[in-house]
Design a protein around this nucleic acid. Structure first.
Lengths: 283, 283
DNA sequence: CGAATCTTTGAACTGAGTCAATTAAAGTGG
DNA sequence: CCACTTTAATTGACTCAGTTCAAAGATTCG
């Protein structure tokens, strides 16, 4: 399976239902029928909006290449980055609820999307069950993603949020067949900050911290994972108790703070704090 | 339209597609065809789980009555309340992505749900387009809700988070035809805390603060909105700049803190801080 | 009526936000 | 291609909102 070009898709500025299925990781569903369904494609240049918040919902946009941010602007002018989207994601799903897009989808680099007019997509879906599945898969995935974002934002220190965010990003990249060690952040620190609910200065500091502790290497917007295992362990650190050990617990009460984190990177053995966090420990 | 009972539904422990449409606010789509589709119902007692995290996805559960919390437990045992669901919501949508439920749905009070086996629902949808729409509506709504939760959690003080949460809750209740002034919190402070990403002690304190400022009245789990307008204004307060006023601005640089909030309640005129928050101000 | 849970309140500590100032990078135009 | 402007990123110092820890009420439930 070709991950850079989609056959004739690019040249002719159109693609097939099969392409959509492939991008979304449903290659096994590709068949002659899905080959027959054709969608127009659109090249999108950096900074361009694919959906406009408040505009009437008409199409879903399947990302073939490139990265987007979804930005919601509230009535007072505050911007919130709701998420980052790439191949395997669909733009515009929130429009399903009330017929209006819930945010701007801004290209963070030159990109390509397939335009699926929703009405037509539905018609196609009636003939090609795989396409119907595709829509549900996309919706479910979007919901799942949001829940993951909630996990990132809920109740952890800034460095941990960042760690989770990075691991999430690179996991998605790896799913698409790219490196699981190196990545380029397409978004600004400010975008990350908005998405994670922290100050952009804190993003800087946290990146530096993660680098100091040897988990990652940061060169501008290029990130390399140096210690995937350690980072994976680190992302689990919270301020609350780990889990109430089945046989009762009697450890020292100490919060996991920066120095412990660093140690965690060194010798891999740390008892993180066990005070009561607001993430209720599982009983 | 009856909002308490659904005709024969309760007695016979089954309901029709029309009922589903009504609960979801699609009463206008009700027709003879949707009357023909029948779904079994299930009574759910407090504390009972409707979906189990990790269990194979098979059905969607349409809430007829009662309240649920959706709880995700991560491998380390930390619990995160992903959201609260009531009539008008559907349980289990996150299972659409990978065929597994993403969290436990726990009843916070005795409740009733309609069980829609997904396969059958799809079949029914082929005959009754309104039901197809229904699924998409539900998905889109779920995504929209998650985005609203992100807004709540992103970058604001605890009192404001709480204010937004309460207003959200009561708006949903009002949508269903109930009071827009009084409500009963079905969930514990701890649940709220987990959902908002703050400590449960902070939830207590913030409720007290909102009450002290005259926005609400708190009696245990009963909340009354005393000053809807003020609360609406208050929820907009952030730590960052309001909006960069079109004609440039020159106000004093002061953060909006508790005392200002209180004042806001009194005389309704406050210039909240205007330093640069991490919620980028709209250009 | 007592056990368990939930809620509130207090006190102290600290992580992260705010403000400020410098450095680096990316555009822009001559 | 190089000055110049503008935006992005880093780093530091200070402050406070919110977490943590502790302990006392209030409710609920068996």
């Amino acid at each position: 399976m070709d991950t850079r070009m989609d056959g004739a898709a690019m040249q002719s500025a159109r693609c097939t239902g099969s392409d959509l299925l492939r991008w979304m990781g449903m290659a096994h569903e590709v068949g002659p029928r899905s080959d027959q369904i054709v969608f127009p494609m659109r090249r999108v240049r950096v900074g361009t909006l694919v959906t406009h918040e408040g505009a009437p919902f008409e199409s879903l946009y399947f990302i073939s290449a490139g990265t987007f941010k979804s930005v919601h602007t509230d009535p007072d002018g505050y911007e919130l980055v709701q998420g980052f989207l790439a191949r395997g994601d669909v733009i515009g799903l929130d429009g399903l609820s009330d017929g209006v897009y819930g945010g701007d989808a801004v290209a963070l680099e030159d990109a390509t999307v397939a335009i699926a007019a929703f009405r037509e997509l539905l018609n196609a879906a009636r003939q090609v069950p795989a396409l119907e599945q595709l829509i549900f898969l996309a919706s479910g995935r979007e919901i799942r993603r949001k829940n993951m974002t909630l996990e990132v934002m809920a109740a952890v220190g800034a460095e941990v949020r960042l760690a989770r965010f990075l691991l999430q990003l690179i996991a998605r990249q790896a799913e698409q067949g790219y490196s699981a060690r190196r990545m380029v952040l397409r978004m600004s620190r400010r975008d990350i900050a908005s998405h994670l609910g922290i100050a952009h200065e804190t993003v800087s500091r946290s990146l530096t911290a993660l680098a100091d502790w040897g988990y990652i290497d940061v060169q501008h917007r290029e990130i390399e994972i140096l210690d995937a295992e350690g980072l994976e362990r680190f992302k689990r650190v919270t301020r609350g108790p780990a889990i109430k050990p089945p046989g009762g617990r009697g450890g020292a009460t100490r919060r996991a703070r920066a120095q412990d984190m660093a140690r965690l990177a060194d010798d891999g053995e740390v008892h993180h704090g066990n005070g009561y966090g607001h993430l209720s420990p599982g009983v």
